[in-house]
Design a protein around this nucleic acid. Structure first.
Length: 552
RNA sequence: GGCUGGGUAGCUCAGUGGUAGAGCAAGCGGCUCAUAAUCGCUAGGUCACAGGUUCGAAUCCUGUCCCAGCUACCA
């Protein structure tokens, strides 16, 4: 399939210093939905998530627990992969910055920048908080007793000097501004782009890209004399230090595309179509990262999407250090994997911060999934089975079906919102149609038509035909909703379709099957002349939750 | 401090000059296929505050208050 579009997207890689919260998995769930949508559309899709495992903090955490660093990160990373599995996240690769190919990619990027004259030896000087590391002067207070860090006001700061390799970021300011201006949608939402443009206007300083005071990292590949730091036996000279963790972390996106080991794969997958990131790391992704790529002569990613944060009911940021976050495993236990994905992405706007509470999730679950959608599936399958016997009724042609016109509008809105990455709005658009279908039932009152069909009088044959039409339309409406929601609820969609007597033609990760936009046309699954399949058994998909019990 | 986004019904939000909207939550009624479900109706707001422009302002202007973000090397 040479004409098949390819789509490569990534999330930020997570820092595995603790078990992951829902606020961390939020972006991964959202990216997974986007990946599944592209797979179902028929795009050759590659979706990358992973973990960022270097940094002095990781090494210290391991040391405090008396554990080997590698063994420590392995155990932490498992918490992440377990949580992703529980949420039905299906990456094509889960990358770890401790992977061997990532070491090669990172060292190659340093070599390229060096060869291009963008890496030089210098000194890093600054105020150093023993509890937190180097601090920017703007974050500090000047007191009569010297400079103080606001987070640790009792500790005297030290002025430290460290020999470092620097990356000539300053040289890229103009080219970055040009790129921002030539590609107005490359950072979204708009106000996030403007923040970075304002930053660029202030000019750029070079950044240090090596550390020599600890060794948990990727060996810096260049020695002080500019020669390779690799020794005859293949080992790396510890005197050369390690690559600064941020420099190495960003490179995961090209490692995951095949750089540098597999030029063919890299040519296929790079540049990435989309980086999904949190607002706190915007600058790294839209200023430092593109400059690194420019220096290495590599194309820039096409789009960076900056999402907001989950806030607590009081408006506080959820974070592991504050301990005020929701546990993804609790969420899966209460709502099921599909319900957890749905309520998270429906309650939290993908383009800004949103306050969420456990109660808001429970209310959303009950209202949208148990009452509106789940009950719609249940009443549809029950009525079709009871009134028509076994076979699945076919829908009327689109021109004769009132719901078909409404569906066309819904599908247009749904796909437009998905393509704009406004995932919460996409779900809202789709759920408008859930309401249409429920109102259709009230308007048509199939139970009344069924009564007329059984009356045995002159009107009975017409009533029988009408009953099949109405229920056929309804089954079709539910098929379309179920299929369209599959990127959000990948394990519910097959179960819903089974009850409706339809096959689910996609693999567990959304690959295979027909282009979903074709399958989402009214009547697409029931071509004229096809044999009618049998309905399945009505089984509730989303058991209603008691708010008191669920909140306990 | 500067710049940016926001402050609209109990909750989450839509609404950029023309008689205040949606969903959820609440109350009432209908229906019975369904997960005490669903459908309809009702109630609920001095649109942060104070001035101004205008025939008319949530919407434009000025000022004030509050919340969040950006203002470079924790990741």
């Amino acid at each position: 399939m040479p004409d098949r579009p390819r789509y490569y997207l990534t999330t930020a890689i997570a820092y595995p210093n603790n078990k992951p919260g829902l606020h961390t998995l939020y972006e991964v769930i959202g990216a997974d939905v986007i990946a599944r949508w592209h797979r179902m559309k028929g795009d050759d899709t590659r979706f990358l998530t992973g973990t960022d495992e270097h940094s002095v903090n990781i090494a210290e955490s391991a040391a405090q627990q008396g554990r080997d660093t590698r063994e420590f990160v392995d155990s932490m990373v498992k918490l992440f992969t377990d949580a992703e599995d529980a949420l039905l996240i299906a990456p094509d690769r889960f990358i770890r910055t401790t992977d061997p190919d990532h070491r090669r990619a990172s060292q190659e990027m340093v070599r390229r920048a060096f060869a291009n004259g963008d890496v030089y030896l210098g000194k890093y000087e600054g105020w150093y908080c023993p509890n937190e590391g180097f601090k920017a002067p703007s974050d500090l207070h000047e007191t009569p007793d010297g400079m103080r860090c606001p987070n640790h006001p009792t500790i005297t700061l030290q002025w430290l000097t460290e020999r470092n390799w620097f990356f000539r970021l300053s040289a890229y300011r103009d080219r970055l501004v040009e790129h921002f201006e030539a590609n107005p949608e490359w950072v979204q939402p708009e106000y996030r782009k403007n923040e970075m443009l304002a930053f660029l206007r202030g000019g750029l300083e070079d950044i240090s890209i090596s550390r020599e005071t600890f060794h948990w990292g990727i060996p810096f590949p260049i020695a002080e004399n500019g020669e390779t730091a690799q020794r005859e036996d293949g080992s790396w000279d510890p005197e050369a230090g390690v690559i600064y963790v941020w420099f190495d972390a960003l490179i995961n996106y090209i490692t995951g595309a095949g750089f540098p080991d597999d030029p063919e794969a890299f040519a296929k997958w790079w540049p990435a179509d989309l980086h999904v990131i949190g607002k706190d790391i915007n600058r790294f992704h839209t200023i430092i990262w593109p400059a690194m790529l420019m220096s290495a002569g590599i194309a820039l990613p096409r789009k960076v999407w900056v999402h907001g944060w989950l806030l607590t009911g009081g408006g506080e940021r959820m974070s592991k250090s504050r301990g005020n976050f929701l546990d993804p495993q609790d969420s899966v236990a209460a709502f099921g994997p599909d319900g957890a994905r749905y309520v998270t992405l429906r309650e939290v706007a993908f383009d800004r911060d949103t306050e969420v509470t456990w109660d808001s999730f429970v209310r959303r679950y009950n209202a949208d999934l148990a009452n509106d959608f789940g009950n719609l599936v249940n009443r549809t399958v029950t009525m079709a089975g009871r009134y028509l016997g076994g076979p699945r009724p076919d829908p009327r042609p689109a021109a004769d079906a009132p719901l078909a016109a409404a569906w066309a509008r819904t599908l247009a809105a749904y796909t437009a919102k998905l393509d704009a990455l406004l995932l919460h709005d996409a779900l809202a658009a789709l759920w408008d149609f859930v309401g249409e279908a429920n109102r259709f039932v009230e308007t048509e009152q199939p139970w009344a038509i069924a009564k007329a069909a059984k009356a045995g009088d002159a009107g009975a044959p017409a009533a029988e035909a009408r009953l099949a039409s109405v229920l056929g339309d309804l089954v079709e409406a539910v098929r379309l909703i179920s299929l369209a929601s599959a990127p959000f609820m990948p394990s519910i969609a097959p179960r819903a379709l089974e009850q409706l007597g339809h096959a689910y033609p996609y693999a567990a990760d959304g690959n295979g099957g027909p282009p979903v936009l074709e399958a989402l046309a009214w009547g697409a699954a029931t071509p004229p002349g096809a044999a009618a399949a049998a309905l399945g058994t009505a089984t509730p998909l989303f058991p209603r939750l008691d708010v008191e019990i669920a909140g306990a």
